[in-house]
């Protein structure tokens, strides 16, 4: 496009800078608070970013709460549900993308529309079934629940991605002597790898961050870290430094992970959104 005026750039940079501060300040506030003592929290605005950092809060929360245990739960549940939803979701997407059958489009729409099902509608009934099946406070229970939340997203995204791969690739493999499942394994899945990775990242982040069902379905054994955060608050309303430290332990893995995998995520997200 044509060159832009000086004023345009000034306005552009100014707004970006302003919004940048708005975006980063709360995160910075979380970071610095986690390295403070309780006293330093009360020290006033001027010393918000000017203080002697200490790891005291981290030491305290790890010693008094089973943080590591909950972190492991969060990880296991996230990875487990992501694996299941990817496996089931991708083969379902394959059927929707590669076969024509009566009711296919209605089915695809049904699966997508579950994305708008209010979680709160499912919360109580699922609590009741899990209670009957002895799945309360178990990691398996949470994995099942999160798998079902991720499935519509996985099916929807993967259907688009699979449709974008020419079916002739698999057909060529079948003519070459491969079975249908073999062609999927040898040709389709390797070609789809970047897309699968992008979808997987979103599933992991979603499960990692999920709160409502973790709150309802877990007590201690399977409790994930997000559920522990509000407990920290009621426990020590004055101890923002401890809550901040726990929050850091929870969000840092995701932030680091998403920076590393950023290329895939932006790509996956953009492609999914732009296709109808």
């Amino acid at each position: 496009m044509a060159p832009k005026s000086r004023l345009y750039w000034i306005v552009c940079y100014f707004i970006l800078a302003l919004y940048g501060v708005f975006t980063l300040l709360p995160i910075a506030y979380l970071v610095v608070s986690s390295f403070k003592t309780q006293l330093q929290i009360y020290a006033g605005v001027s010393s918000t970013f000017w203080f002697t950092p200490t790891l005291e809060s981290y030491r305290f929360i790890f010693e008094t709460k089973p943080i590591l245990h909950m972190l492991m739960n969060t990880l296991i549940v996230s990875v487990g549900s992501t694996v299941f939803s990817l496996v089931f979701g991708t083969i379902a997407a394959y059927a929707l993308a590669r076969y024509r059958f009566r009711g296919r489009d209605d089915l695809a729409f049904y699966i997508l529309s579950i994305r708008m099902f209010p979680p709160i509608v499912a919360a109580l009934p699922i609590f009741m079934i899990f209670n009957n099946l002895n799945l309360l406070d178990s990691k398996i229970g949470l994995i099942i629940a999160y798998t079902s939340f991720n499935l519509p997203f996985v099916v929807w995204m993967m259907t688009g991605f699979i449709k974008a791969v020419p079916v002739q690739l698999e057909e060529a493999a079948m003519v070459d002597g491969q079975s249908q499942l073999g062609a999927i394994r040898d040709i389709l899945l390797p070609v789809l790898r970047p897309s699968i990775l992008a979808v997987a990242i979103f599933c992991i982040i979603f499960s990692w961050n999920e709160f409502l069902f973790a709150l309802i379905l877990t007590k201690s054994q399977a409790k994930t870290l997000p559920v522990a955060i509000p407990e920290f608050i009621t426990w020590t309303e004055v101890g923002w430094n401890y809550v901040a430290a726990a929050g850091m332990v929870l969000v840092m893995p995701v932030l680091i992970f998403s920076f590393l995998a950023q290329r895939y995520m932006v790509r996956g997200m953009s492609m999914g959104a732009i296709k109808d």
């Binding site: 919004y19 955060i229 969000v251 932030l255």
Partner: peptide
């Protein structure tokens, strides 16, 4: 990527941060 960070954060933690940012005492 820095502009995208908030959407990656756990909503519970986001709520916590803002709760404390808005806290009347400190």
């Amino acid at each position: 990527p820095f502009f995208l960070m908030p959407m990656m954060l756990t909503p519970v933690v986001v709520g916590t941060i803002w709760r404390f940012l808005f806290n009347g005492e400190f």
